[in-house]
Nucleic acid binder design. Structure first.
Lengths: 193, 193
DNA sequence: CGTCTATTTGAATGTACTCAAAAGCGGTGG
DNA sequence: CCACCGCTTTTGAGTACATTCAAATAGACG
């Protein structure tokens, strides 16, 4: 069952007891999503911190011209959700959609606060989680400001192995901040691998 | 004195006691930096989580061609430091330099761990701090992938008011991921404010 | 005042985008 | 099982955004 996967994931970051895990399962809500189903729509309330138990979800933002920009591809045992909307209890800035059939565990704000209050191990877990996430966000920013589109695509292939086979190319282009047409041309150039 | 500023800053995020603050001052090391003095050099060990008590520091990364890329401008009551090097106790990926005379409080890894262990309020403080930082990093990524250079500069002016008067333009260009020449041209275009 | 660095300016170039059209691909229904 | 529809990807031509390089100008500091 998926509970083992979750437990194992928590334990990789910090020491959690059986009781802590129990509390987590009590407070979180499981949800199944079919391919292309939305977890949350932009501008809607109800942002939750969401653990992807299986599958793959995409977080994206639609700008004033309704062009979507992909923020994140979330895979198994990654967390997703609009953190700002979650913290401030405001409408979500992003939409989140399942790219394949997926299972998630959602944690609402009050439950999250309760979890951190009653199980200090989770306070610690999330501190470490955010800390790691911050590191990878910093790296992504460095890449954004210092690499060409081609280099960014190479980096993407390394950091998200296999994802280019699953998700539509236009979404990867959006994640990298380039047009799908240009990504197509980059891919053509690097045919000999 | 600066201790009040620090206390006030901690209290804005979470409830800390007198004792917690005392522990922080015991465990952290104060340091003064003159203008252009380096807090840490890229590839050197000793990364510390650093609270900027006064002044302004710049975090940057030099790529293989030795071109510097600015990651962050840190101002009063902001934290700075290479989080990855800090967590993993590895050489720093970035250099950090004082742009004006500055005062900082540095927290080494072991002291940080001790602080979180002995004062759970700090575990919570850092969880919240990283959480907020993550939100602003996400926004920066969105801007990087969806805005033109001109829009990015406008955003920068809003989010770092007054900084364009203090720090050399080439550093701002680097922060935005554009060339100094092009920033100069952008600025020329928007003379009528 | 002279030196050093930062900023501006301009011309030529390159990288990435827009638009339009064609080709490919996957799902659905007959 | 094939034909068709809608969506994604490819291709190409023309364009815009941003860079490079070089030179001139402006500012900062001893």
């Amino acid at each position: 069952m998926s509970l083992e996967k979750i437990t194992e994931n928590f334990r990789r970051h910090t020491a959690v007891t059986e009781r802590d895990i129990e509390l987590f399962t009590e407070l979180s809500k499981s949800k199944s999503l079919g391919k292309n189903e939305m977890l949350i729509e932009q501008d809607q309330p109800g942002a939750a911190l969401t653990l992807i138990v299986s599958g793959c979800l995409m977080t994206f933002y639609s700008d004033k011209d309704c062009d979507p920009h992909v923020m994140q591809f979330g895979r198994e045992m990654w967390w997703t959700g609009d953190l700002q909307a979650f913290v401030e209890n405001t409408p979500s800035l992003y939409s989140i959609k399942a790219l394949v059939d997926s299972e998630v565990a959602m944690l609402e704000k009050e439950k999250f606060d309760q979890l951190c209050r009653e199980a200090p191990a989770f306070e610690r877990y999330f501190r470490i989680l955010f800390q790691k996430s911050l590191v990878s966000h910093q790296k992504r920013i460095i890449r954004n400001i210092s690499n060409t589109a081609e280099e960014k695509y190479e980096q993407f292939l390394k950091s998200h192995p296999g994802l280019e086979l699953t998700v539509p190319q236009k979404h990867i282009a959006s994640y990298l901040g380039i047009t799908p047409e240009f990504l197509s041309k980059i891919r053509k150039k690097r045919v000999g691998k």
